[in-house]
Simulated assay, not measured.
Amino acid sequence: MVLTNILITLGAFVGMEAVAWLAHKYLMHGFLWTLHADHHKKETTDFLERNDSFFLIFATPGIICLFIGMQNDFNPLFFIGLGITLYGMAYFFIHDIFIHQRFKVLRNSDNAYFKALRRAHKMHHKHLGKEHGECFGMLWVPIKYFKQSMDKKKSATTKVSS
């Protein structure tokens, strides 16, 4: 039973990457662009953006699943809600803290995965409009960005050792 609950939680977490990708590409860069545009254009210096309203939109299903699952002896809905909530926490740490530096921590990482994440997200933000976007996910990074970060690391190592 414990293994099943762990697998449900992990499945929901991984599934949220697909949900986030689809929602980002087709909703946020679609009819909900009015909420997401300030994230790309930085029209204000305010700490909060209209884009932050997506936090509430995406948290709601997780909260509902957690609540209903707790009312029913921690049934699978609870563990689905847990996976959704854990993904939301990961999103906050990776996207808001690490990538966009809303809090000035985790600035210098030499990790290839983290460098690839930053590069992919930077490529996403090079498009200021809602069209022609790329890299809509958060945790899944196209392999070309890993290769770029590894190539830069190798060239830096070669320069130091020369």
Rank of each mutant, 00 (worst) to 15 (best):
Y91M: 07
M138Y: 06
M16Q: 06
G129W: 07
H29E: 03
G133R: 00
F92R: 02
K147T: 12
R119L: 15
G69Y: 02
M150P: 00
F58Y: 13
M16W: 13
A156C: 06
F78P: 00
A116V: 00
M70I: 12
K25C: 10
E17N: 07
F54T: 00
V105K: 04
K25M: 14
N5S: 08
F78V: 00
V141I: 15
D46E: 09
K147H: 10
Y87T: 00
I64A: 08
G81E: 00
T45M: 11
Q148C: 06
F54M: 04
H132M: 07
T34R: 13
S162V: 07
Y145W: 10
N5M: 07
L128T: 09
F136R: 01
T157G: 10
L82F: 08
D110F: 09
H132Y: 13
F67L: 15
L48C: 04
M138D: 04
G69S: 08
H100S: 04
L106F: 11
R107K: 12
N111H: 13
T45E: 14
K144C: 11
R118A: 12
K153R: 14
A23Y: 15
G133L: 04
A112M: 10
R50K: 15
M28I: 11
M16C: 09
A37S: 12
I6S: 05
W21Y: 14
T60K: 05
K147P: 02
A18W: 14
F13I: 03
S161V: 09
K42F: 12
A112D: 05
L22H: 15
T85L: 06
D46R: 14
F146Q: 01
T45V: 11
I57L: 12
I68W: 08
G88H: 02
L3N: 09
K41G: 10
D110E: 14
W21G: 01
L3K: 10
Y145K: 04
V2D: 06
A37F: 06
H125E: 03
A90I: 02
E131I: 03
K42T: 12
G133W: 03
D73K: 05
G88F: 03
A59V: 05
G129E: 14
K154G: 08
N111D: 11
N108E: 11
S149H: 02
E49Q: 15
H127C: 08
I84D: 00
G83M: 00
H39Y: 13
F79Y: 15
L66M: 13
L56T: 05
T34A: 14
T9H: 01
L77G: 00
D52Q: 07
A20F: 15
N5P: 06
H95Q: 09
T4S: 12
I80N: 01
E49V: 10
L10M: 12
G11W: 05
I6R: 06
T34C: 13
S109G: 06
F54N: 00
K41P: 05
A90M: 10
S53C: 12
A37W: 03
T9Y: 01
H29Q: 06
L86A: 05
I99C: 12
A37H: 06
I99V: 14
T45A: 12
C135D: 08
H36S: 04
H125S: 01
L117A: 15
T9E: 01
K126F: 09
F67Y: 15
A23F: 15
T4A: 12
F31R: 10
E43C: 02
F93C: 08
M89R: 03
